[in-house]
Amino acid sequence: MQIESALLIGVLFGCATYLILQNSFVKILFGFVVLTNAANLLVLTMSGNPGGKYAPIVGDAAGPLVDPLPQALILTAIVIGFGVTAYLVLLLYRIFLDQNTTNAAELYEDQDTSEHT
């Protein structure tokens, strides 16, 4: 399981990086969505294989248990990612409305920030 998860996470991170480096807003947006999910999956894999682990408090558990803490962490991270993604969507939409473009390269092409007031 570990090897497969590691591969999957690697592929997801690779895809996310590729997408974020694109010019189109939509691709950048999807890149961030994939990136958050890849990170969540990484944390999930960190909890490891349930084999040979038992709940610390209950004592004699019926069977092996997965560590619940990373799952709680992921839930929190998902909630945060949800909010930030919603914000990102609207920010990109607003930039599109303002600048009439969805191309990041075009948007930041010839900006001179040294004298803006």
Partner: peptide, 20 residues
């Protein structure tokens, strides 16, 4: 204010560019 424009709105290109 900018968010109020509909996404499908057919803003005449030239006009938008002048604005920009």
């Amino acid at each position: 204010s900018p968010v109020e424009q509909p996404i499908e709105a057919d803003v005449p290109r030239a006009e938008a560019e002048v604005g920009n």
